[in-house]
Design a protein around this nucleic acid. Structure first.
Lengths: 274, 274
DNA sequence: ACAATTATCACATAAAACATGTTATATTGC
DNA sequence: GCAATATAACATGTTTTATGTGATAATTGT
């Protein structure tokens, strides 16, 4: 019954109805997204009461969120868009586990020295890494991620190279033959990447195209570095793309549970908890 | 003495001082940019009087424009950032001659049929073309322009392919070997491009990298189409990149002066005034 | 088909963000 | 140090955005 806890968390602002703590519209929308994700389905009236706003406002919120592809609106409420697409939605992922991801990014960025050539994949964790690189004196960054590109473009200290390829809006990145061939022709000091899921010592991602891209990335870099939030150990995804042992360094969020850590040690995987 | 004319053009709103016609802040800023470009240098007080606003407002405008790299603020006024960089600044170019560019874009878009594969270069004119393509049922678009990419990404009706390459912030596009090689491997029905300058029947652009990219674009497309605003006939640029006769279709803004049109006809160039 | 529910529309109003001017307080250049 | 110019802080007015309301339309279940 995850339901009760979540709704309470929202309601404890105020004993009575939801009118208590002031919330910005976008905070409210975020919260709606969280609820939809947790519950799979929400009632419009329920939301209106919960947030202490009118039905019309919720209607408008849901319309907007639907347009962004975060949920599907139906009569009387909304549902998660099919949780796979949902889980992989870029904006949503971007907003979860930020502190953990930022810590990982800082640790990884410390490896890089001015003048290095660095490859970054299209994950949200590595996007934060890109932000860390803004501070480095001079650096060449190769990526297939539009988000990284938008973040870094125009900085005088970064030479930005995009792989190109077919654009995929779910991951906000470029994939396919073009991407892989371009990566094949380049050479980097470091490759930083992430994975959707870890099972045992195997890494997985839900999308084939992304898997191919990650393979190409790894084989074009001198050293590969893996960044993993602890939640990746609980997720599931279809396609195997690498083994933990292939990485020079593995950084994992400190919230990793002990059992999982123990298993990694037994498998002789060198990793650092951040 | 371009000075007098420009200031007058702004002033004729109102006989007395500049307080006459209401102007939005961004219109005012645009106008400031125009003035700085024409004069190379402007005085803060002069601007304040001209627009009928306080010094403080002009200060804030200049701060903002400086942040965008459109000018350099100094004591008492501002100067053009070095007019070459300036002239080729993307945002600035984007905002000039819009109606003419839009008309050209509409004419060009009419050539394309659903299912076509289309290449677009990085010019502002062709960016407007991208907007026209949003309406087409299904289309594959290949481009080296980040602006086109941002404009079209996420549309379900367009398959978007980016060439990749080294990012150049002045043109908001990707260039170099990667870009050219990728283009070499692709094949399109149409290539739409523009030029910086036309002299006789020769086309020029100020940047070598861009020239190479345009050549690659043209040689990978079945049909090449050129879009030119009339002002291109007055501009000058260094590098030759093609001849008008190489294009299947040439669309030119209707304001083209008669002498120039006559010369083109004499050279047996088929073109359409839009 | 009918009643009940839910959506949408159009408008009025409230709240937030933005733009501007004013005054007071630094800075700068000479 | 003086004059000119720049910044900062605040008050005010303006525009944009967010919200609620009531009327009207669409839809659902029976």
């Amino acid at each position: 019954m995850p339901s009760a806890a979540l709704w309470r968390a929202g309601k404890d602002n105020d004993g009575n109805n939801g009118g208590g703590a002031k919330m910005t519209p976008s905070e409210r929308r975020r919260e709606i997204v969280n609820l939809v994700m947790a519950e799979r389905t929400v009632q419009l009236d329920q939301l209106a009461e919960h947030f202490g706003v009118s039905r019309m406002t919720i209607h408008r919120d849901l319309d907007l969120l639907e347009e962004r592809g975060l949920l599907r609106k139906g009569r009387g409420g909304a549902t998660a868009e099919g949780s796979l697409l949902f889980e992989s939605n870029f904006h949503y992922r971007m907003q979860t586990e930020m502190p953990e991801k930022r810590a990982l990014a800082k640790a990884a960025a410390a490896l890089v020295e001015p003048g290095n050539v660095v490859m970054i994949d299209d994950s949200t964790t590595t996007l934060l890494l890109a932000e860390e690189f803004e501070a480095i004196e001079f650096i060449t960054i190769i990526t297939n991620s539009l988000a990284v590109c938008e973040r870094l473009r125009g900085r005088p200290n970064v030479h930005l190279i995009l792989t190109g390829g077919s654009y995929n809006d779910t991951f906000q990145g470029f994939y396919g033959l073009i991407c892989e061939q371009t990566l094949g022709k380049l050479r980097a000091d470091w490759a930083f990447l992430s994975a959707s899921s870890v099972i045992g010592t195997s890494l997985y991602h839900q999308d084939q195209e992304v898997v191919r891209m990650k393979r190409a990335l790894m084989s074009s870099a001198e050293h590969s570095v893996l960044l993993l939030t602890h939640s990746k150990f609980k997720a599931r995804a279809l396609n195997h793309f690498a083994d933990l042992s292939e990485f020079e360094k593995v950084f994992i969020g400190a919230d990793l549970d002990d059992a999982a850590a123990q298993r990694l040690r037994q498998a002789d995987i060198a990793f650092e908890l951040i």
